[in-house]
Design a protein around this nucleic acid. Structure first.
Lengths: 138, 138
DNA sequence: TTAAATGCAAATCTTTTGCACTGGC
DNA sequence: GCCAGTGCAAAAGATTTGCATTTAA
């Protein structure tokens, strides 16, 4: 298990068989460099890259996020209709969505229990189960 | 309880205190006229209205759906990032989403049990819990 | 060398908005 | 008559796409 951010990024890409280009490595490092899970939007990742001094176009951020998703490295989380969020934790788990700030965070999954999930109808299988808990400031 | 579609639509609007304009009545009748729950997008409702011979602009469909939502007559369901769906069933309940067709339908809620839901963090309350089960053809 | 990836700008798609007009109350 | 509701077209966001250029293998 790599501990160096750059190495983590490289490993992450190679497990999915994605070519480690400069842009992908920069984005991958921002996503998984410290080994922690993240929730990003295309825009937020683009800003982070700019702040980091990386040279990546917004279109490439979109295309790269989509490529990471298709490779199974990221999970797309849809929550407010306008923006898409991408989660580095690709397992099914619940999310909190802070309506006021438009921020997504993990909800403690131990505290949620789906006792039983409806069976998929004939001719279909369950691709994923998404649970989003919308929060409002009190 | 009204059994006539037009009457149902009128009642539905009046419970929310919304003025029964011609356009709203036409859309309301398409939504709740037969007493069954529906899942629509702005586009699909607009098409249905046109087919029905009703004269409503797309902008008005959007504005009206939003107004119905704010009045508590509809529940917005976000599922695929691109489009918003509106459900005439405003109670918290799970949905099936057919990825291939982009269609939303109710999942049998008796078969889903949230044993325990994570507590809302300090300073926040739970506004809603959304459960979407994505289906893929086998 | 060569197919894949990138950058940019333009295109697309969904949704909202500004403003003049219409119609419930 | 007043003010909410409507229609249209234009604007606003988010995301994708076309195409020429660059780059990893």
């Amino acid at each position: 298990m790599a501990t160096d951010p750059a190495e983590r990024a490289t490993d992450w890409l190679s497990t999915a068989g994605l070519r480690p280009t400069r842009q992908r490595l920069a984005l991958a490092e921002l996503l998984v460099g410290d080994g922690q899970h993240r929730h990003v939007t295309a825009e937020s990742l683009f800003d982070a890259a700019k702040t980091d001094g990386a040279s990546v176009s917004l279109a490439t951020v979109y295309n790269t996020l989509r490529a990471f998703c298709e490779a199974g490295l990221l999970r797309e989380v849809t929550v407010d209709g306008a923006r898409s969020y991408f989660d580095t934790n690709t397992t099914d788990h619940p999310h909190f969505f802070w309506e006021a700030e438009g921020r997504l965070s993990d909800a403690p999954s131990e505290e949620l229990e789906l006792k039983r999930v409806p069976d998929a109808p004939e001719g279909a299988e369950i691709a994923s189960v998404s649970v989003v808990i919308k929060l409002r400031k009190t």
